[in-house]
């Protein structure tokens, strides 16, 4: 049994290492400072993904500002008070949303925001990403909050703490490490999303900070590089993928550090 589980674990990790290694192997040759700061240029003239990195971070930041707090609040509600019919409905909706392909969120935001406004925008892109994040954060938060032992809540209640303070002061801090893991899952997921952004943030060839204009992103840029017929751009797609994976890794490490168990 131990051998079997160990073999399975090793098999999965081997595949993961192979994927990461292959990305690094293919991408490292095109990686340079210029690549990280320049905007895309025509074939043969170099160019990079600087605007796409900034764009991805802005999109992710906006989406996280909405998706993570909302997800945590809904998830906490489900765990603490969501045993009635309303909680059941919310839980069902969240589960369904997790299963919806991301392109559907893109088309949805395209229909209700982009078409109404008449232009692609950063805000529309961030909204579609936030819609993907909310159910993921909701469900992981619920599971983590449920894991906080009843005895800890009772300890606080017995001191005369009202329910909302027990939740805010004791339960959420106790579940924080797990909640952060859920948030990171959501961050990693949306940082790798392409489809919803094609319909919403669309992409851009320039550095941009305006939220009502189209915004470049790493994934869309990778897509554009990868579907081109040029060898040079294929190499750039690999390099951009390497940057994306590294970025997710760093965000993970930083969040782990910030939410590490202090007590």
């Amino acid at each position: 049994m131990t051998t079997l589980t160990a073999a399975c674990a090793f098999g999965v990790i081997a595949v993961l290492i192979f994927v990461l290694g292959y990305i690094a192997f293919q991408g490292i040759s095109s990686l340079s400072w210029q690549f990280l700061v320049q905007t895309p240029k025509p074939v043969g003239e170099g160019g990079g993904i600087g605007n796409a990195i900034v764009g991805s971070l802005i999109l992710l930041g906006l989406a996280s500002c909405v998706g993570i707090p909302l997800g945590i609040i809904i998830g906490t509600y489900l765990a603490e008070m969501g045993d009635g019919w309303f909680g059941t409905i919310v839980r069902f909706v969240a589960d369904t949303m997790i299963g919806i392909p991301s392109i559907v969120f893109g088309v949805f935001v395209y229909a209700v925001v982009v078409l109404q406004q008449g232009y692609f925008s950063t805000l529309a892109g961030a909204l579609s990403l936030a819609l993907i994040m909310i159910p993921i954060v909701t469900r992981t938060t619920e599971e983590m909050v449920r894991l906080v032992p009843k005895s800890m809540r009772e300890g606080a209640l017995a001191l005369g703490a009202p329910q909302w303070r027990v939740t805010k002061d004791i339960v959420i801090p106790a579940a924080m490490t797990g909640i952060a893991t859920g948030a990171m899952l959501a961050v990693a997921r949306v940082l790798g999303e392409t489809a919803p952004l094609l319909f919403t943030a669309f992409g851009s060839r320039f550095y941009n900070i305006y939220l009502d204009e189209p915004m470049a992103s790493m994934t869309v840029q990778i897509y554009n590089y990868a579907i081109s017929p040029f060898e040079e751009w294929h190499a750039k797609a690999w390099a951009a993928t390497l940057v994306l994976v590294t970025l997710i890794l760093f965000i993970n490490i930083i969040v782990r550090f910030l939410t590490r168990r202090k007590y």
Binding site: E154, G155, P173
Partner: peptide
């Protein structure tokens, strides 16, 4: 009431603080 009538539980339950 709970402030006036304190409670100590079977299993010690300190807060994560």
């Amino acid at each position: 009431l709970r402030r006036k009538v304190g409670m100590v539980f079977q299993k010690s339950n300190p807060f994560p603080k």
